[in-house]
């Protein structure tokens, strides 16, 4: 039999499997009426502390809240998050540097999503890999701490480009570490013009009310859509 050379067009997303699963998850979340937020940042930026405070406030206001948290090895973060009173499940990723839709789907198995108002997904601490993986979330928040320097957004344009909200954490330390707010704002604008930048401190509570307000507005908007 003779073989003939040929070029065939495929045009398929390499992460097709993840994208399809994320789409399914998004539909499940929407049907259940739960608003889902994916938190991404470098290790140590303060995702767990900020989330604990955020969930404590939401639960205090009567909202039903849960979280899944990705970590390479330990379940320390899940333990800390439980202090907020919310239901928390751990995803141990081993050597995988990001969460994928399939891991989230497995983590929420058995949960009655209809009994939840908010679900937070705390991604693995990493500013590169989580950018490529849709988890079916309504919004993605990227966190930077004041100790990371003002130009961090410009070093990781891909992740911030995939985000809907930028949060500056540990703002109570801004003066002590010489964090220049204006330079940070300018860096964000160069990478992702128009994105909202929120300054918070989980320790003093600064900015958390605004974040809460934003989440409630986001949830309300998602429900009428």
């Amino acid at each position: 039999m003779t073989m003939t050379p040929r070029i065939v067009e495929i045009r398929q997303n390499v992460l097709k499997k993840n994208d399809l699963l994320a789409r399914e998850l998004r539909e499940r979340f929407r049907t259940a009426g739960v608003y889902v937020v994916n938190l991404v940042s470098a290790p140590g930026a303060g995702k767990t502390t900020a989330l604990t405070e955020l969930m404590r406030r939401l639960a205090g206001a009567g909202w039903r809240v849960a979280a899944v948290v990705g970590d390479l090895a330990t379940d320390n973060d899940a333990e800390r998050l439980r202090a907020s009173g919310a239901a928390v499940r751990q995803i141990t990723t081993g050597t995988v540097c990001h969460l994928e839709a399939e891991m989230v789907a497995r983590a929420i198995e058995g949960w009655d999503l209809g009994s939840l108002d908010f679900l937070f997904i705390e991604n693995v601490g990493n500013l590169v890999c989580p950018a490529s993986y849709d988890l079916g979330e309504n919004e993605r928040a990227v966190l930077f701490s004041v100790t990371e320097g003002e130009d961090k957004p410009e070093k990781y344009p891909t992740l911030i480009n995939s985000a809907d909200l930028a949060v500056v954490t540990k703002i109570d330390l801004a003066e002590a570490v010489g964090f220049d707010r204006r330079r940070f704002q300018e860096a964000v604008e160069r990478v992702r013009p128009g994105i909202e930048v929120l300054e918070i401190s989980a320790r003093t509570g600064a900015g958390l009310d605004r974040w809460l307000e934003r989440l409630l507005a986001g949830r309300a908007a998602a429900r009428v859509r």
Binding site: T4, P5, I7, I10, N13
Partner: peptide, 15 residues
Amino acid sequence: GRELELYALEGEADE
């Protein structure tokens, strides 16, 4: 600019 796509394959096919 966010694409990550298998666009085409080149190969040999039976006639």
